[in-house]
Design a protein around this nucleic acid. Structure first.
Lengths: 340, 340
DNA sequence: ATGAAAGCGCTAACAT
DNA sequence: ATGTTAGCGCTTTCAT
């Protein structure tokens, strides 16, 4: 078991100085071709690779980027990671993933441990709890230290940094309009509690679409779900109390659950009730009937976030201007809505 | 924008030496209570946090663990990461995730970049391409350098290291027996090509279950799918050519696709045909009918892998004995199989 | 063309 | 009780 070899050892073996070895390895023409060849051959033979940590300490950058997300077992976030990873790797960066599990404390701890020199910048989506508490001191701190930060999807207006967001309100608007255009007259909304920023925005889009089409908002047709585990109970209530011919749900799970309940109650989809979900994940594609959804383009979001971050990391002087990229959703028509 | 403060700066401000500051911060009783208080107050005020990189260089460990998986947009792997993350974080480690995207070259590159000092150990599941090529030099190299490695799920016998695997053959056996016990007479198998180790093992379990129940293996009932994207075409062929009353599929997607085709052809599930899938992901739970599956306990695998790795990382002298933990699958009965 | 030396931020053995 | 020094592995400036 050979341990990794260092410059020092090479220098000693070859009876030259450490700096000669270092330079030879980096093809410096300060060093004679002869020595360069000799050093390189030796390095290759012993499979020399520079120690990343030492290089990081010296160069003041780690070539790591930290990603903090609420949940990894959530298809949208994994697609974003996939996009981040792709561009990060192509530019020589590694991705350190930390999960907050929707907990404020965990989010704070994660940020603090990573911010102490382990990474060159952050990409993050804040936890529900953080959104509820509205306490962003940890983000502020990191930004104040000059560490680049890109927020995505679940962002906060209070923090000045680059952002990549989905056009939630517009997407919801688009979905509801599609229901209207395909003949729905009474459209229900299944959404989350208001402190979840994206839920709120999607609710807004839903209302606007109704208003713009002179349909009026009926609050009885809107249910806000807190406990995702037991969303079926809440949704059952909607079916008990009211009737409608279209459902817009802010995520796949709500949409699928609603479809299942509708089917159990004997409604035909989409003839009797049409369904659209936000977020195009695996569930939608394999549901029966397949679910019409709004694709959020997670991979693309990840790629853009990583590009923005790396740009900020690598720019010479720091630039105080921040961008917000808005990713348009696109409607994926499947079998849970009527054809136009 | 205040940059991070260092020991040196604290020392200068307080007019003491760097080592005094270092010691004071670590509550060394070599230092007078007075100085300790003063230093700590100052450090707190300026929010001093030790630089991880410097500590790593000094201490020869990074408190990072590298995880290399073929795909992140794959529910099983994300559950494993979730488990790894949980125990890693609880023991003060960060998780660096790299994706091979099922590519041998990418896997090699990922390992090499991480092995150069960025991490203290690896947890990995090898790519399909690596399994096909049977080239494990990169793993061997890492192990030879004394870097702890834990392989999970897709492992290789050629590498001596700790492993965590699913009892694939036994799980498949269990699934097929369940089909038999619930009355199936002719059971089809939808599997992957043989070089995917888990596919091969699950095929083995299938055959053994049939043999042990004196049912005989009919090769016409076995299809091996190479191209997952177009698995529906292959599965259609199975339905065209043969008839059967039970299907065991080595993953969720194959099972769901087969169920959908069966439904289109007018078969009732489970009355006419029963289905079981390997891997209990989100699809199974939300399919209609819900799919009976073998749960692989990804979270648990991740936790065990992380525990094994950290144990090896932290042990004093290195221990050449390696363990293989076998995780039993469990059958989750849902509506795609008949009740006993 | 080569090497000595300083320094990145920290720890720790060894003075004083 | 405090400070000096060396060193982790590397880069780079400044001699020689």
């Amino acid at each position: 078991m050979r341990r990794r070899i260092t410059l020092k050892q090479i220098a000693k073996e070859l009876d030259v100085s450490i700096s000669t070895v270092s330079k030879a390895l980096r093809e410096s023409k300060e060093i004679s071709q002869d020595t360069r060849d000799k050093v390189q051959a030796f390095a290759k033979l012993y499979n020399y690779k520079p120690n990343n940590i030492a290089v990081s300490l010296k160069n003041k950058h780690t070539k790591n980027i930290g990603v903090i997300i609420p949940e990894i077992v959530h298809h949208f976030f994994t697609t974003v990671i996939s996009g981040i990873e792709k561009v990060a790797n192509s530019k020589g960066y590694n991705v350190i993933v930390c999960l907050s599990n929707e907990s404020f404390d965990k989010e704070v701890i994660n940020m603090e441990t990573l911010a102490n020199g382990s990474i060159d910048g952050f990409i993050m989506s804040i936890s529900k709890e953080t959104q509820k508490k509205k306490d962003f001191h940890h983000l502020r701190e990191v930004v104040n230290q000059g560490m680049p930060l890109v927020m995505f999807d679940r962002v906060s207006d209070e923090i000045y940094c680059d952002k990549v967001i989905v056009d939630d309100a517009r997407g919801a608007y688009q979905a509801v309009e599609h229901l209207i255009h395909t003949g729905c007259k009474r459209i229900a909304l299944i959404t989350t509690v208001d402190y979840v920023s994206v839920g709120k925005l999607r609710t807004l889009g839903y209302k606007n679409a109704l208003l713009d089409n002179e349909m009026g908002v009926d609050e009885d047709l809107i249910i806000k779900i807190e406990d995702i585990e037991n969303c079926d109970k809440e949704i059952e209530k909607l079916f008990d109390l009211d009737n409608f011919d279209g459902v817009f749900a802010v995520n796949e799970l709500f949409a699928l659950t609603a479809m299942k309940i509708a089917q159990e109650r004997g409604y035909r989809i989409p003839e009797d009730i049409s369904f659209i979900g936000f977020t195009d994940g695996i569930l939608s594609k394999h549901a029966s009937p397949t679910l019409t959804t709004l694709a959020q383009h997670g991979i693309e979001m990840g790629e853009i976030a990583a590009d923005m971050l790396i740009e900020k990391i690598e720019e010479e002087e720091e630039d105080e201007s921040f961008r917000t990229e808005i990713i348009r959703t696109s409607l994926i028509q499947r079998d849970s809505t009527r054809k136009i």
